[in-house]
């Protein structure tokens, strides 16, 4: 697991108040929404803010979200390619 994957999991746990969850409990390919981690639309807003705040990425097309926030792997890929900080 790369540092970015671990960093992302830590940020998600902290930002979304997943108090009882450990980094090791989130699989890299697990769905973040729906059946997987069970995040919802308010969490999606938090993740958009997280991308901009921590990595300088501004999502201009909301339709991209579904693909980017599919799992930790997809988020990490997107961040690697688009980060400005």
């Amino acid at each position: 697991m790369s540092d970015l994957h671990t960093e992302l999991k830590k940020s998600i746990i902290e930002q979304l108040n997943l108090e009882d969850m450990e980094v090791s409990e989130i699989e890299n390919d697990e769905h973040l929404f729906g059946d997987g981690l069970g995040l919802d639309s308010i969490d999606a807003l938090e993740l958009i803010v997280l991308l901009e705040k921590d990595y300088g990425i501004k999502l201009t097309d909301p339709n991209q979200g579904k693909e980017i926030f599919n799992s930790i792997n997809t988020m990490a890929d997107f961040i690697e390619k688009n980060r400005t900080r």
């Binding site: 308010i42 807003l45 938090e46 901009e52 705040k53």
Partner: peptide, 13 residues
């Protein structure tokens, strides 16, 4: 803290 920058939406909602 963020000098009126990006805000987490949950607490506002």
């Amino acid at each position: 803290e963020s000098e009126e920058g990006l805000l987490s939406p949950t607490s506002f909602i």
